[in-house]
């Protein structure tokens, strides 16, 4: 697959500045690529081929190189996550502490299946591999923050997020 960068950038001027910043942050521009894609995921809540093509242009890399990275790492999605992206750890310690029950709780409370976004775009949830918080099992990640020792009540409380 090869995609050309769209004539009109999919990024705002400020976002373009941030991307250019990532090319200069480290001793070689390529070292900023994963960080740049993290920024894109944050802005668009997904990485589209068009966005990847523009990133490729900024980094002076072939599209396939960037798309390969964008489709390899679990942080990057090719579906639009909710404004609040909720992750449920199902690593062994969290599983021992009842993460399976939390899965049904998330599905019921947020009203959508895993990796699906609510109609208002507010929430999506997904299981995640070990979040590195095994002493606080079961662990949730809400956007980029950890919510440890999660219960049904902590899931219900998510609804209060703006």
């Amino acid at each position: 697959m090869s995609v050309k960068a769209p004539t009109k950038s999919p990024f705002t001027p400020e976002q373009e500045t941030t991307l250019a910043g990532w090319t200069k942050r480290y001793p070689h521009s390529n070292l900023g690529l994963v960080e740049a894609l993290r920024s894109v995921q944050g802005w668009h809540r997904q990485i589209t081929p068009e966005a990847a093509a523009r990133v490729a242009e900024v980094f002076d890399l072939p599209f396939n190189r960037v798309w390969g990275v964008a489709t390899f790492f679990p942080t990057f999605t090719q579906w639009k996550t909710g404004r609040h992206r909720v992750g449920l750890c199902h690593g062994l310690s969290c599983w021992l502490a009842g993460s399976t029950k939390m899965e049904s709780c998330l599905e019921k409370t947020l009203g959508v299946a895993e990796k699906t976004t609510t109609a208002d775009g507010k929430f999506s949830w997904e299981t995640m591999e070990c979040l590195g918080a095994c002493e606080q099992a079961p662990a949730l990640q809400v956007n980029d923050r950890l919510v440890g020792a999660a219960t049904e009540a902590s899931v219900v409380k998510l609804k209060d997020l703006k």
């Binding site: 480290y26 994963v34 390899f72 790492f73 679990p74 942080t75 995640m128 591999e129």
Partner: peptide, 9 residues
């Protein structure tokens, strides 16, 4: 310099 990963074990 700090650098972050993207979710791969």
């Amino acid at each position: 310099l700090l650098m972050r990963g993207a979710g791969a074990y």
